[in-house]
Amino acid sequence: MFPVIQLGPLSIQARGLILLVAFWLSAEVAERGAKRLGLRGEVVYSLAFVAAVAGVIGARIGYVLEHWLAYQSDLGAIVALNFNTLSPLAGAIAGVLVAYLSARRKGLAHRLLLDALTPGFIVLAGGLALADLASGDAYGSPSSLPWAIELWGAARHPTPIYQLIAVVAIGLIVLKTDRVFDGARFGWFVALSASSRLFIEAFRGDSETFGGVRTAQVWSLLVLLLMLVLLRRWAKSAGASAANDGHSRGSGNPKHEVGHGASVRRV
């Protein structure tokens, strides 16, 4: 565990550094993934950059709004960015919203784009597990298993390592499986990630609970079920589009470029 990396007089938080490297790597990987799916890599790269900037700004605004009483008398402090004063939920919402609007403006097919970004999401998820391992966060509950690690005064489940193993396995499954319809790769990544969180959360020692129930598990189950519903809808619409394509070809109508029938173009 190395929460802080000391470089001469400079103290760098390992968590922040790992996440920064993971983000950069994920953008690179997403760019390559985009090219493989026939999208222009640099467009996806710039989209990821815009989403990241929006995410950080959104996370900061979210934190300030959550703690407005503290900030209202010291407005100058709003721009003093500190890694500890960000709201992850607000950041995620802002990042996704801006990425969605930006993709829409560029006329990118959303599901195809999500598939292209999925290898990047996998790298980011791996980076998050490594960051937890380095900082000692997301630690496990006490355990007597032979692979338990000594952390915070007890032998514990190495939950960040479980998470890392899950990310690798999910990555292999998702990337090795044929992309049968637009959104399939992203959909399975989300569904499997939610399943792994639902499972691994049971071994965490820092779970937030409500009446004894681990809230992260409830959210994970809801995300899993929602993703299964979406996957079915996407598979059905892809099937319907394919059937229409066959029919159109027979009747001489021009065929749609993207499988799910939306009026989108590949950039």
Partner: peptide, 8 residues
């Protein structure tokens, strides 16, 4: 740390 950060 700013006063606002500590207060938050």
């Amino acid at each position: 740390l700013s006063e606002a950060l500590i207060a938050s």
